[in-house]
């Protein structure tokens, strides 16, 4: 594996290698001194053309724990503001001897474009509404950690799927690992190409959650409201909000994930978010697991003989 651009293009064996490695690396996070020397002398550059707290910080933590340098380009204060093209920016970062680029960009496909312009590994930290592979991996990791395995699980992804790169990475990653995926949401928030995805579609929450093992609740991107895709937050919450009540039709041991940031009281109730009333919520574990998964990604892409990958 040279880059991590999508889970759609990541093989089952690479996903398995990453999840297994993350399992081993997670132990380091529990140590009093959270540091291993593995990536000493390597430099990861993060370059985010969109806002992010948890993803960027998580990559930075991951790099530092593995002893790599972590350098962040603040895009607003960079030459990008002077009109430098994406191509020139990433080539410059490569010339500065970065060993790995982690990029978030509002355009779908930006990560592939960048990968075609540089010789160093590129990690897609979210490109438009296309993919967010490390979030997908950390969701897979969290589910596997709690459920034991992914094969045969029934997973519902609920909410604003059309605008969600998290949903896409989940769909490809989960189905590759043998889970079944349902998309649940109002018709206006389902992607246009939904027929070509390996999923079942539900526009009714109750039938969509019936018998599921896992519910991955997406953030309702309220900025979309203005475009008339939803009548009101209150109506959305009533029809698609995940609450203790709506989870009753799911399996009794149903696991709830949310990639954050959460709109409490809109797509997810307080009780579910906090894991109260007997609900198994993994929201905080997801954040911790995100660091372990990103350590594994950096190890695979920057460790070893550089880009030779595993044998």
């Amino acid at each position: 594996m040279r880059h991590l651009l999508t889970l759609r293009e990541t093989s089952e064996s690479d996903i398995r290698f990453l999840l297994d490695t993350a399992t081993a690396l997670k132990e380091i996070l529990q140590r009093p001194v959270k540091k291993v020397p593995t990536l000493r002398g390597r430099a990861m550059v993060t370059c985010f053309y969109e806002n992010s707290t948890r993803t960027r910080t998580s990559f930075e933590m991951a790099a530092k724990i593995m002893s790599a340098e972590a350098i962040n380009i603040a895009v607003a204060q960079s030459s990008v503001a002077k009109g430098e093209s994406l191509k020139d920016t990433v080539r410059t970062l490569q010339a500065l001897q970065a060993d790995c680029l982690v990029v978030r960009h509002p355009s779908s496909g930006a990560a592939h474009f960048i990968a075609s312009q540089v010789r160093i590994p590129v990690v897609n930290a979210g490109d438009g509404r296309h993919e967010h592979p490390t979030q997908g991996l950390l969701d897979l990791f969290t589910i596997r950690q709690i459920k034991g395995e992914l094969q045969g699980l029934e997973v519902a992804i609920v909410g604003d799927i059309a605008h969600s790169r998290v949903a896409r990475s989940n769909i490809w990653g989960l189905t590759r690992m043998g889970a079944r995926v349902r998309l649940v949401g109002p018709r206006t928030l389902l992607p246009a190409d939904v027929d070509r995805l390996p999923v079942q579609v539900y526009t009714d929450l109750r039938s969509g959650l019936e018998g599921v093992d896992v519910v991955n609740v997406l953030r309702l991107q309220t900025e979309r409201m203005e475009k008339g895709l939803l009548p009101s937050l209150r109506e959305y919450s009533r029809l698609f909000g995940i609450s203790v009540q709506s989870l009753r039709v799911a399996r009794p041991d149903v696991l709830v994930l949310h990639p954050g940031p959460m709109n409490r009281g809109v797509e997810i109730s307080d009780e579910v978010a906090d894991g109260a009333c007997g609900v198994r919520s993994a929201v905080e574990e997801q954040v911790t697991n995100g660091v372990a998964v990103r350590m594994a990604v950096l190890y695979l892409l920057m460790g070893g003989g550089g880009m030779s990958g595993q044998d």
Partner: peptide, 18 residues
């Protein structure tokens, strides 16, 4: 994770230490 030769070898799988 502590090898001194990872620059010369392919990435090796890491097993959990316990």
């Amino acid at each position: 994770l502590y090898r001194d030769d990872y620059a010369h070898r392919p990435t090796v799988p890491i097993a959990p230490s316990a």
